[in-house]
Computed example of a mutant assay.
Amino acid sequence: MKRLVTVVTGGSRGIGAATCRRLAEDGHDVVVGYLRDADAAEDVAEAVRRAGARSVCVRADTSVEADVERLFAVAEKQLGPVTGLVNNAGVTGPFGRLADSDPADLRRIVEVNLLGTLLCSRRAARVMTARGNGVIVNVSSAAATLGSPGDYVHYAATKAAVDALTLGLAKELGPDGIRVNAVAPGVIDTEIHARSGDPDRPERLAASIPLRRAGRPEEVAAAIAWLMSPEASYATGTVVRVSGGR
């Protein structure tokens, strides 16, 4: 029996790391894509191996085509043909109003969140179409429909684009036996808030969430794992919201 081989971009931390661990439990061999923290990526890979699956870490900037090509080439060489992709790599940029934003930050947000997702999806589609099956899960955000005024409308805009990509690509690749879905997390308690300059954001926003708490990375990973699984075999082109009701 051929093994499931899933590439997870941004797999060294937060939702990505939780997804790598969960997919390993579900029988996936996992490619841990990362940008900077090699040690953190290797820690995740070790957790995957302890779960009984194979894993390899690959440094890749998903907004760079050559890096994406190498990511998939290493995956295939070391683990086998890629059967799944989780487009998780993303950045928010600094919090604040659009009028005050730096064009360099705007460009990077678009490059990582949208172009990176497009490039990885393009590469996965080529592999999966030739084989006649595969699964892609994009990590969107509840911000795509909330707009996130005053926080990061630039980020929200890129995630709305990811939702559009999910729908269009699902229709495009469905006849080839490939499913494409997305998850839209709400406020999740990860280090992304601290990196954006607001470490207390999850706690501060808890009162505005119907479930009165921030989510956990493992809760998002569970939704991703379901979309990757045969149990979701008739789900494509959908965005599963994991946002505590927000």
Results as ranks from 00 to 15, higher is better:
T158L: 13
A125I: 11
P175W: 12
R123I: 13
C120A: 12
T129R: 11
L205Q: 05
Y155Q: 05
G134F: 10
I188C: 06
K171Y: 09
L114D: 04
G168F: 09
A99T: 14
E111Y: 13
L118S: 02
R122C: 04
V153C: 12
P199S: 11
G147R: 03
I178W: 07
L146Y: 02
T145L: 03
A184C: 10
N138S: 11
V180P: 02
A124E: 03
D102K: 15
A164N: 12
R201W: 04
I178A: 06
D198A: 13
G132F: 01
L114G: 01
R204L: 13
D189T: 03
A164K: 08
P185R: 12
I188D: 00
G168I: 13
R201F: 09
G132C: 09
A99W: 08
G197I: 08
R97H: 15
K171I: 02
A143Q: 01
R195G: 06
P202I: 00
S101T: 12
G177S: 07
A157T: 13
G174S: 08
A124D: 01
K171G: 06
K159G: 01
V162L: 09
Y155P: 00
S141W: 03
E111N: 13
N113R: 12
G134M: 07
A124F: 14
L205A: 07
T129P: 00
L114Q: 09
I136V: 15
Y152A: 02
P185I: 05
I136C: 06
L167R: 15
A164R: 14
V110D: 12
E203W: 13
T117E: 07
G186R: 01
S141H: 08
L98V: 15
V127G: 04
G174M: 01
F95K: 05
I178Y: 07
N133R: 15
A170M: 11
Y155C: 11
V135T: 14
T145R: 01
L119G: 10
